[in-house]
């Protein structure tokens, strides 16, 4: 049955999108959870909706216009966070809503109905185009390259930012780079599960692999990516079989898998 599905281009694209998305879920998701910046990431994600709206308005692929929105809100959040004494979560709340508001304004300025608005908010993995895939691939390559180059710096600032500053690591610049990388990762995920649901993909695969791996960031990234790919594809197949919305099904499958793994892992008495 699965092989039959590959006859359809939309299904092939969906599978490729699932795998491209899983790369960032594993890599970026690991940093988001260990550095405890889940909510910053949520803020960046919602702020990127402003870019989606702008894309509609000026007739450009909304993913393209979402990139500067996401990156600029990430850098803005980072700078405000480091340079001012305003509470971080208050700023996140503001950027979160302002981005959404801008998006709505842009969309309302455009005459007529915005047909696939929902696909950016809640994802639409079955309508991913070849262009989307190329964009996702390029962003994946950039993200993998950043992590390859700055692995030891990111590890250090995630573990102990203050000590990292003391030993001469440019922590502020690297923090902004990390946030920008998160912004790019969010763009990769928008088509798959949408702005509103994507935080589940950035957190759950890591939390599952964290149940098995405790001491090696690289292995956590790789295993989180694999777990993500498997679960997203399972979710996709189930949604197809049961005629459910794919993004919501994927998120629910991820959550169920996490609860399942967590319960099993924590009900077995620890040895030694």
């Amino acid at each position: 049955m699965v092989l039959e599905l590959f006859q359809y281009e939309f299904m092939r694209n969906a599978f490729i999108a699932a795998i491209l998305a899983s790369v960032v879920c594993g890599i970026t998701g690991t940093y988001i959870v260990i550095k405890k910046i889940v909510f910053i990431s949520g803020g960046i994600s919602h702020a990127s909706f402003g870019g989606v709206g702008l894309g509609y308005l000026i007739g450009v692929n909304p993913l393209i216009t979402a990139i500067p929105f996401a990156v600029l809100s990430a850098i803005g959040l980072g700078i405000i966070n480091k340079k001012t004494r305003i509470d971080e979560d208050a700023i996140i709340g503001i950027i979160w809503s302002v981005g959404m508001a801008l998006g709505l304004i842009f969309i309302s300025l455009k005459q007529g109905y915005a047909p696939d608005l929902f696909s950016y908010l809640f994802g639409s993995i079955l309508t991913v185009t070849s262009f989307d895939l190329i964009l996702m691939f390029v962003l994946d390559v950039i993200i993998v390259a950043i992590v390859y180059l700055f692995y030891k710096e990111f590890l250090s600032i995630s573990f102990d930012e203050e000590f990292s500053t003391v030993i001469g690591i440019p922590t502020d610049a690297l923090y902004l780079l990390l946030l920008s990388m998160i912004a790019l990762s969010i763009i990769v995920l928008i088509r798959v599960v949408g702005i509103i649901l994507l935080m589940a993909l950035l957190t759950i695969p890591f939390l599952i692999s964290r149940q098995f791996i405790s001491d090696n960031l690289r292995n956590l990234m790789i295993s989180s990516s694999i777990i993500s790919a498997i679960l997203v594809i399972i979710g996709l197949l189930i949604s197809y079989a049961l005629d459910l919305i794919p993004s919501a099904t994927i998120v629910l499958i991820l959550s169920i898998a996490f609860i399942f793994v967590f319960l099993i892992k924590n009900s077995i008495p620890k040895s030694g």
Binding site: I34, K36, L155, S158, F159, D160, E162, R210, I213, S214, D215, N216, L217, L220
Partner: peptide, 9 residues
């Protein structure tokens, strides 16, 4: 100041 659960040896 540390997160004791941080995945590092």
């Amino acid at each position: 100041v540390f997160d004791r659960n941080f995945p590092i040896n």
